[in-house]
Computed example of a mutant assay.
Amino acid sequence: MTQFTKTLIAACALATGVAATSAEAPGPYPTFAPPPADVPIALLVDLSSGQTLYSREPDRRFMPASITKVMTVFTAFELIDSGKISPEQLLMVSDGAWTEWHGVGSTMFLDLHQRVSVDALLHGVTTVSANDGAAVLGEGLAGSLPKWTEMMNAKAREIGMRDSHFGTPNGWMDEGRTFVTARDLATLASAMITRHPDLYARYFGKRLLKFNGFEQRNHDPVTGVVEGADGIKTGFTNQAGYGFVGSAERDGRRLVMVIAGAPNARTQHQASREFLEWGFQAYSGSPLFSKGALVGRARVQGGADRSVGLKAPLAVGYDLPSGQTGKVKLSIHYEGPLQAPVAKGEQVAELEIAVEGMRPSRVPLVAAQDVPEANGFERLLNGVAGIF
């Protein structure tokens, strides 16, 4: 396999023209700032450009507490979209799960031996951080919690979370076996939003859960407060302090933030809100491609077609400090030629965005259509075409 690189000349000309227009200064809004010094870990990235807008100790390990549940939800999303499970599938609350998790920490008040849908469990985990819901979900889908955490860790490695490990489905204290970094959590959020945008919209950003006769509110600090915000997950342990992974989308820009180690809930809430607002205020975004736009093509070997279109799963743009301008160069990278079969929606390439004065960044590109393996006649045609 060879690393293929293709520079997008036309797109570069367009992007340079966009960037050459001076950005207007922010409106008469309050001035926001990155998290204060008593929040030791902070990271802000723009998924639309892949650019890191702010970074403080992004590779420092910490215990994520309930933020762990994002990995449980992502693993379930992967199973749903692969057709291995369905949201309507019913799981039973086992004796072991009920004994261990009934009334422990955040809960959705599951009953012993209750049969509950995957859909309800996911809503319980994402909206009220249900410890019992996460445990029943993992045990019911994998057969046991050790098998479920094996699946979680396999998915973490697959998406590039290089410095994280999960020992529980819900982040309950496990003597430090569960740990993450801010960079890995941003990777997880990016994979979840990019791969499963419909499921993300279905389960995150909900303010209220009504289940088993109880009504509970979501306590994340940004949803319904910061414009365009839709979660994602808070976490707290006495050892690690208060943390939060959050996201918001405005005008085609999707920001993801991570903070950890905040000394109290008040600092966690204020820092989270101001961090997202600062990202939108301090940087101006310039659009390059709309969501679903065809960005380029990649060569395919052994397929019914000799190439496949490359689409942007999210809107793509780039950031510059507000009021500044700069040139941008775009390049497509992939290991190729790609080997058939190629599945529609599969990530097969990356778009590199090199903005003058900032570090290059990359965003994923996915296959625009299925490319099945070639039959005998198609292989013959491709061989002839290859000669010429």
Rank of each mutant, 00 (worst) to 15 (best):
S272H: 00
R177N: 09
H269D: 13
Y200E: 12
V225T: 09
A265D: 14
A191R: 04
L255R: 10
M173P: 13
S247E: 02
L288T: 06
G171Q: 03
A265W: 11
L208P: 12
N170R: 10
R266Q: 12
R195S: 13
L255C: 12
A182E: 02
D220V: 02
R254P: 10
A240Q: 00
G279Y: 06
A262I: 00
R266C: 02
F214L: 13
V256P: 02
T237A: 09
D174Q: 06
D220P: 00
E175R: 09
G246P: 03
N170Y: 01
P287T: 09
Y203H: 07
W172G: 07
G246M: 04
P263D: 02
P263N: 04
N264S: 08
D230H: 10
V226H: 07
A186N: 10
F244A: 01
A229D: 04
E277N: 13
M257K: 13
L294H: 08
G252T: 02
V245N: 03
P287R: 11
H269W: 15
S290H: 05
I259S: 01
N238L: 11
G246Y: 01
R207C: 09
A186R: 09
L185Q: 14
G241I: 00
W278D: 00
T168Q: 10
R217N: 13
G235E: 00
T223F: 03
K233A: 01
T237G: 06
A201S: 14
Q268K: 14
T267A: 07
M173T: 11
D184T: 06
R202C: 14
S190G: 15
G292S: 06
G261F: 03
G246C: 09
F289T: 06
R254L: 12
E277F: 08
R177T: 12
N238K: 15
T181M: 04
G228C: 03
L208I: 12
G205H: 08
R202D: 14
D198W: 11
R202G: 12
H219I: 13
L255A: 08
